[in-house]
Amino acid sequence: GSTMDPSFLLVFPLLLALSTPCNACDCKIQHPQTYYCTSDVVILADIQGPGNNTVTKQGFRINVLKAPKGTPRFHEIYSLISWKDCGYKLRTTQQSQLLIAGYLRGGTLHFTRCHLVYFWYRLTREQRLGFEAAYRTGCKCQVQPCLFCWRPCPQPDFRECVWRQQDCKYKIWEGNHSLYSVCAPSMDGPCEWTHIQMNYQYQTSAPATSIH
C-alpha cells in the first residue's frame, strides 16, 4: 500500500493549530481586514452591563452606536461563560465604544475573546476607515500571515496578500500592513496592499462578501 509523505506529518499539527484558533483560548491575532470580512456582524457599541444568561452563555446589554457590517438592531450580545473557553469578561461595570466582530446563531449575536473586541480610540485613523468602508473592498482577497521567519515568505497567489510583521510576531498589530493598509484587488486584477486613503471615497453602499 501507499505510505504517507513524512513531510505531511510535520505540517499536520500546524494545520490543526491554525484551524482551531481558540484551542485552550490561545487566540491567534488576525489582520483587522480578516476580522471584518469573516465576521457576520461588526458593531461599535457600549456594553452597559450584564444581560440574560443561559447554561453556557452570558449576555451583555449593549447600545449599538453604529454597525460597519450587518444590522445595528441588537440590544444584547452573548459570549461563553467559561474563561478557558474564551468567554469574555467585563473588567468594569460597563465599557464604552468597543468594536466587536461577532457571528450570528439563531438571530442572536455571539462573540468570544478570539473574535475582535477592541477599543475604538486605540485604532489608527486608517483602521477606523478600514472598518467603516475600506476593508469591504478587499473581502474577495485573503490575508496570509508570514509565519516562518527563517525562510522567505510564500509568494502570494492571485487572491492573496502576504501579511508581514517584524520578526514574524503576531501578538499585536504593528507595521504598515496592520495599521494603515488594505489588501484589495488592484487595477490589473491581483490582490495587493494599498495604503488606506483618508480622502478617498470608498464605496459604502454594497454589502461585504464573506471569503468563507
Rank of each mutant, 00 (worst) to 15 (best):
G1K: 14
D5W: 08
L9S: 10
L9R: 10
L10P: 00
L15M: 11
A24I: 10
A24S: 14
C27G: 07
Q30I: 00
Y35Q: 03
Y35W: 14
T38G: 03
T38D: 11
S39V: 11
D40N: 14
V41W: 09
V42P: 11
T54G: 12
T56D: 13
Q58I: 09
Q58R: 15
F60Y: 12
V64T: 09
V64G: 06
K66N: 15
A67T: 05
P68N: 06
T71N: 14
T71H: 10
T71D: 14
P72W: 09
R73L: 06
F74L: 04
F74M: 08
F74P: 04
H75Y: 05
H75N: 12
H75E: 14
E76T: 08
S79I: 04
I81F: 03
K84A: 08
G87W: 03
G87A: 08
Q94C: 01
Q94E: 10
S96C: 00
I100K: 02
A101M: 04
G102N: 06
G106E: 02
T108I: 00
H110Y: 13
H115R: 13
Y118D: 00
Y118R: 13
Y118S: 02
Y118N: 08
Y118T: 01
F119D: 11
R122W: 07
E126Q: 15
E126V: 01
L129I: 11
L129Y: 02
G130T: 03
G130D: 06
F131R: 05
A133K: 06
A134M: 08
Y135W: 06
R136H: 09
R136V: 01
R136I: 05
G138W: 03
C139N: 05
K140G: 11
C141R: 04
V143H: 07
Q144K: 14
P145R: 05
F148C: 11
W150K: 11
C153Y: 05
P156L: 07
P156R: 07
W163C: 06
W163P: 02
R164M: 11
R164G: 00
I172Q: 15
I172D: 15
W173N: 06
W173S: 01
E174L: 08
G175N: 08
H177G: 06
V182F: 03
C183W: 03
A184G: 00
S186D: 10
C191N: 03
C191Q: 02
E192S: 13
T194A: 10
I196K: 05
I196P: 03
M198Q: 15
Y202S: 06
Y202M: 05
Y202I: 05
Q203L: 08
S205L: 12
A206K: 15
P207V: 09
A208D: 05
